[in-house]
Design a binder for these strands. Structure first.
Lengths: 236, 236
DNA sequence: TGAATAGTGTCTATAAGACAATATCCC
DNA sequence: GGGATATTGTCTTATAGACACTATTCA
């Protein structure tokens, strides 16, 4: 216990490696997508891996996650939050590794514009909550499941779950959209994350009443129907 | 990133210590309480510390947390869940330490019966959510704030926040109560965790309709008023 | 004009809050 | 009986879902 910990006790034990992995999510074509890259190394060759790296000894966890994300996407100033720490003994055959997982949310246009090391934006399939036994899966554009490295499939599933839990209680969805957005776009985010359609009328009423949004007065352009009003999220 | 990690890369870096701390909560006298012990060591002497220990190299994080809790409370089979990982560089003056915080929920009678190393059950003051700038505080029975070791005050606050977030979406409150309980007791848990009174009528209707509970047919005894029916949480 | 979606108004069903009335225990 | 809380029932109000109707753009 902390009460009996001493400096020498902390030094005496063999130490695990500590790494940071990032589940970088965006929305494209009405579906969630996650940044991954195909492994070329001997261990787990051909599997798809999240961006990640070893924690620097003089670097905080949050800083390490931001660095990993910046390297993978070529972007800075992205929303990122800690998710969960994975610490099973044999989760990585290369040694004892404790991995702190983060998730990040990026608007699709920035995601596409960044020049980073993560080569693929794989689709994230979110099962309908009514479908019992449904699991979040990372798939290619043909719908085939991609084999994920180690327990990183669990990290993606957990990120989606966390996102879903926060969707109704916070304006977190804003990070997946550009600064000016329509209510329809916001609804699409909710539907992609929930894996089921949401009631349009009730959604609009609830979001407008939430106070998170303010109308800009401008409208979208170059759509083949009546253009919707543009909103922005109020600074909090 | 994970895609470029190699075995040697994992070994080459200096490694931080990894420890596990546990926020063990219970409910007594209508208030949340947390297990702490006063530090006698040179560093942080007189401050109050959560149960914690260094992660064993052959031990999973979850196992380490269960071990720490068992040692502190003298109890096994307690609800415990990972909370957050603290990784600022200078959070512990004894060296670079990454701490994975867990929170545990124990029914008051078991908590009191266990013979463990944690000596104090300090009150946790939960501010009313309407009171802006209110912070969760750990206090003695006189209401004086107890100085917490390192960032462990933040861990307690985060545990309460997490608990509050889960209260309405899961039967998590059951872990703070004995197997057979009255609706009034359950309401007291909600009020303690929320830091504000809840509407009794609505609370009863909602909980009964949730399907989490089943009536036992028995009633409480030795109360100086009409005895309430006893319920138990359905196994899920 | 027609296709398509935006946005408004209204009706209904459900859940929350308020409160009154009755029930059941101990003293 | 009196004090205290449990439990039921009813009324009112707020919110969610359903749906009809009008508005606005482009082809």
């Amino acid at each position: 216990m902390a009460g009996t910990r001493t400096r020498s006790a902390l030094e005496v034990h063999p130490r695990p490696s500590v790494t940071v992995d990032v589940v970088a999510l965006t929305l494209a074509g009405g579906a969630l997508r996650v940044a991954v890259s195909r492994r070329a190394e001997r261990r787990g060759r051909g599997r798809f891996a999240l961006p990640g790296d070893v924690l620097g000894i003089g670097e905080s966890l949050d800083d390490a996650a931001a660095r990993v994300l910046a390297h993978a996407l070529g972007l800075a100033g992205v929303f990122i939050e800690q998710l969960h720490t994975f610490g099973e003994v044999r989760r990585d055959p290369r040694g004892r590794v404790v991995t702190v997982a983060y998730y990040a949310l990026v608007d699709a246009r920035r995601f596409a514009g960044g020049r980073g090391a993560a080569t693929t934006r794989a689709r994230v399939l979110v099962p309908s909550p009514r479908a019992r036994r449904g699991r979040v899966a990372v798939v290619d554009d043909g719908g085939r499941a991609l084999p994920m490295f180690l327990d990183q499939g669990d990290m993606v599933a957990l990120a989606v779950e966390r996102l879903r839990g926060k969707l109704d209680d916070s304006p977190i969805a804003m990070h997946l959209l550009p600064a000016e957005l329509t209510l329809r776009q916001l609804q699409e985010v909710h539907e992609a994350v929930r894996g089921e359609p949401v009631n349009k009328d009730s959604f609009r009423r609830r979001l407008v009443a939430s106070g998170w949004l303010e109308a800009t007065g401008a409208h979208e352009r170059e759509v083949l129907h009546r253009p919707a009003e543009l909103y922005r999220f109020r600074r909090h």
